[in-house]
Amino acid sequence: MHNRIKNAFDGIQADEAFEKKLMTKVAKRRSTIKAAGFYRKAIAATATCLLVLCLGLVGYYLYFTPVTVISVDVNPSVELGINRFDNVVSIEAFNDEGEKIVNSVKLQHLNYKDAVDKLLDTTDFSKYAESEGLVYLTVFGDNKESDIVAEGLAEHTRSRSDVHCSHSLNKETKNAHSNGLSMGKYEAYLELKSINPNVTVDEVKDLTMRQIKDRIRENDKDDFTEELPEQNVDRKESKGQHHGNGH
């Protein structure tokens, strides 16, 4: 009986044609699977590239977008753009003296405190600071980061008697660049203009910060003498939160 069952099953065999058909079908499926694998890998690689690109763009945007501006003004006027990580990401000069200083010192990617120290310690800058007596550091930006930078900078420069540090929230300073002035100098111009409406940007452009501040003081004194109370209100146009040394 054992043999009979064996013989019966022997009748069912996979002939050569069956095997060949199987081999062809499996080989065909192999290429489909391989192609699918290739496409899957290609899609995964593309998705990874896109993700990396997006992350890179977001990272680039986050790093290279200034959220705070520090305007450094004596006679040379220089603006430092500070990102949310407290690093300098842009440097812009607003007059020839500023241009000369910016070209002589590398401030990019430095922490804002180090950058300000480095800038103030350059021979060109200290020369002006000595002759003018005071360096004006004005922090611009109405956000948390700017508050932190303003506080940090005030604390950092507290020991320096030749530095005046302030934080300005004056929104009108956005017109500074279109008038060819740094934001710090433009704010001083606005302060002067609030007392003396006849003053123009061209008049102020070549003045040092010290000279503008002296004019403000002079005009201010005149106003008090002439007793024009409404001009005292105009003087508050600059809503800066002043702190630090100097004035």
Partner: peptide
């Protein structure tokens, strides 16, 4: 290839 005798067994299985 299945003989009549084997087919009987195969059928049974």
């Amino acid at each position: 290839s299945v003989s009549s005798q084997s087919s009987e067994v195969l059928e049974a299985v």
